[in-house]
């Protein structure tokens, strides 16, 4: 197990993390669930590759184009589906994701189902790390503002949000567009890491996996999403030796998480220096007062 191998796993985890961060905003903070974000990754992936290969743009601006393309498409999707209630938005995103994959399967310009080879290998551990740090800062700053609070309010209680004057549709839209942009950038990084793109990389299973990571990390926790992406990307890689049984256990693990610890690893709490201090203080005071559970549990 060389350095290369470990950096490789972290790079993959970082690419996943980028989408997961966006989904964390959408799902963890706004309360909307998507089964189509692999579709946004695909759009971003193909758009980015188009920029670097056909227009010879540098990598980072091309990634921006990828993110923008996904964002634009998400705005259209959001416009028509965000008014749908509960389950139905989920289903619409599922339909969207599958439609994107099938369209790419059938459009021969980008190689159809056989895929699109020869994409330059621009993605590496360091640019993935840099982009993720920026993405986390943006997300954290957004969440700790009136805009972020409005999204959280929408997650908690839609009707009450309306009544205090929050434009629910607008905030769902902002959340969706940002999450799609993140996914688009992640797709761009993915294509330039694997050096090829293939529609089947962006299947429903991929979308599900992403949402599962967000839930596994804990809804409403950025640090949870980071942990979730690291654990759930590296674990299957490490388990690769067990090849076909890997996904069997994965499926079981998903059910197990849902029925046993649905609040995820972090349960909505953040791992920050101040929260660590608070946790420590709670544990100390718990010792002295012997009251009920500390830190993580409310």
């Amino acid at each position: 197990m060389g350095n290369e191998y470990i950096l490789g796993i972290f790079t993959l985890a970082g690419i996943n993390l980028m989408t997961v961060l966006g989904l964390s905003l959408l799902t963890g903070f706004t309360g909307l669930f998507s089964f189509g974000h692999a579709g946004f990754m695909a759009i971003g992936g193909y758009a980015t590759a188009l920029m670097t290969l056909n227009f010879h743009w540098p990598f980072i601006p091309s990634l921006m184009v990828g993110g923008l393309a996904a964002a634009l498409v998400s705005a259209v999707l959001g416009k028509v589906t965000l008014k749908l209630k509960g389950d139905y938005f989920c289903i619409a995103t599922l339909g969207f994701g599958e439609a994107v994959r099938l369209i790419l399967d059938n459009v021969q310009t980008f190689g159809g189902a056989r895929g699109w080879p020869g994409i330059p290998h621009y993605t590496n551990f360091w640019n993935v790390l840099g982009i993720n740090i920026v993405a986390i800062i943006i997300l954290a700053n957004l969440i700790h503002s009136r805009h972020g609070r409005n999204m959280i309010a929408v997650r908690e209680e839609e009707l009450a949000s309306q009544i205090v004057g929050i434009n629910v549709f607008k905030y769902k839209m902002i959340s969706l567009v940002i999450s799609a942009a993140y996914a688009g950038i992640a797709g761009g990084m993915m294509g330039h890491y694997m050096t090829f793109l293939q529609p089947k990389m962006f299947s429903l299973v991929k979308s599900t996996e992403l949402t599962i990571i967000v839930i596994f990390g804990g809804l409403g926790s950025i640090s949870g999403s980071v942990l979730g992406a690291l654990v759930l990307t590296s674990l299957p890689e490490i388990l690769r030796a067990f090849s076909s049984w890997r996904l069997v256990f994965y499926g079981l693990a998903v059910i197990f998480i849902m029925i046993s610890r649905p609040e995820g690893l972090m349960g909505g709490y953040e791992l920050t220096p101040s929260s660590m201090k608070r946790l420590y203080r709670n544990i100390v005071s718990k010792r002295s007062k012997a009251v009920h559970s500390a830190g993580g549990d409310k």
Binding site: I212, V248, V254
Partner: peptide, 11 residues
């Protein structure tokens, strides 16, 4: 839904 997806991946 997620639990169902898990079951479906499992099967």
């Amino acid at each position: 839904i997620i639990s169902a997806m898990g079951a479906s991946i499992f099967l």
